[in-house]
Each structure stands twice: as C-alpha cells, then as structure tokens.
Design a protein around this nucleic acid. Structure first.
Length: 105
DNA sequence: CTGGTGACCGCTT
DNA sequence: AAAGCGGCCACCA
C-alpha cells in the first residue's frame, strides 16, 4: 500500500534529528517533489499528531518560523527550538549550522 | 460535483 | 536586478 503524500511528509518530519531544523522545501523534495512545499505546510497544519510530528522543527527557507504557527501565543516554536539547543540570529535560525543536511543520507 | 484556499518554493519574464 | 505566478495535495462551503 502506497502511503499518501501526507503520510510521507509526516514520516520525513518525524525523521528530523534532535537539535536540527528542516525547511518545507527540504521535506517536499524528500517527499517526491519540491513543489509539495505548500502541501507540507498544510500537512503540518492539520498536524494530526503533534507529539509524533515535531512540526516546530520545520521552518521556511529563510529559517523563519511561520506566523500562522503562533498557536501557543507567540514564538512558542522559537522557544522550543532554543530548548533543543538551536541558536537564532536576527530572529532567524542559523540554518547554515542547524539545518538538517539532506546530503547526510 | 466544483471552486477556492492554505504553515511554501522555484522558475520565468 | 526585482516582481509575479504556477504547482502540488487535501479539506471546507
């Protein structure tokens, strides 16, 4: 049984290592198509299992957290990342250091 | 059943 | 160089 695109996206997001962050395009590319980036955002939007899917480790290409993510009352996602050891600069994640290297596999 | 939208990214003009 | 638009998937009205 082939998994739906959403399931695939969740699988990849779940694979993001602790203390690292990935971009929507990154996940979309691993999911099959880079253009799925929008679908990735929607997939996390429904976020059926936040405990299983660390959506807070997903940031946009600029390393900035989505404004619509402010579900906790602000930059909750940013604080969660800082709690994992992810450093920020200028309000953006230092992707060059914390971005999940796709070439790692 | 059809249309439109949404946590985006890359290409084209 | 900058700006605009398309593409993919799923869900709501």
């Amino acid at each position: 049984m082939e998994k739906n695109t959403f399931e695939r996206i969740y699988e990849i997001v779940c694979k993001i290592p602790y203390g690292k962050v990935a971009t929507y395009g990154q996940i979309a590319e691993l999911a099959g198509n880079k253009r799925l980036s929008r679908v990735v955002g929607y997939a996390l939007h429904v976020n059926p299992d936040p405990k299983r899917i660390p959506c807070h480790r997903v940031v946009n290409r600029l390393g900035e957290v989505s404004q619509a993510f402010a579900f906790g009352g602000g930059n909750r996602q940013v604080e969660l990342l800082q709690g994992e050891g992810v450093a920020f600069r200028g309000g953006r994640v230092i992707m060059e250091t914390y971005q999940w290297e796709k070439r790692l596999f």
